[in-house]
């Protein structure tokens, strides 16, 4: 099963559960506060997902690290290459 099929399956199961409970297809006797909680639940989940995404982006921006060792290595390789090319007669 691909990842897409997994997500679609999970979403459709959740959606079916939500429709069943929200439109009371089983004839359950839910208390009114629970019914009021139920109908904005998909939008709530969407908003929570958006908040999580925003927080993840913010956290990664705040802890974005410099790769100083890699930068030094790259500079060294550049100077090596320049020296090598200068030996072969290339002018910079």
């Amino acid at each position: 099963m691909t990842k897409l099929a997994e997500w679609l399956l999970a979403l459709s199961v959740l959606g079916a559960a939500w429709v069943t409970l929200n439109f009371n297809l089983l004839g359950l006797d839910l208390p009114p506060p629970l019914q009021q909680l139920l109908w904005p639940l998909p939008v709530y989940l969407l908003v929570v997902f958006g908040c999580y995404s925003l927080a993840t982006i913010g956290y990664r921006v705040a802890t974005f690290n410099d790769c100083e060792d890699a930068a030094r290595e790259l500079q060294q390789q550049i100077s090596e290459a320049k020296r090598d090319l200068a030996l072969k007669g290339l002018k910079f």
Binding site: C51, L54, I57, Y59, A62
Partner: peptide, 8 residues
């Protein structure tokens, strides 16, 4: 980044 985390 801290602003984004705080906002969310």
């Amino acid at each position: 980044g801290a602003g984004l985390v705080a906002l969310s």
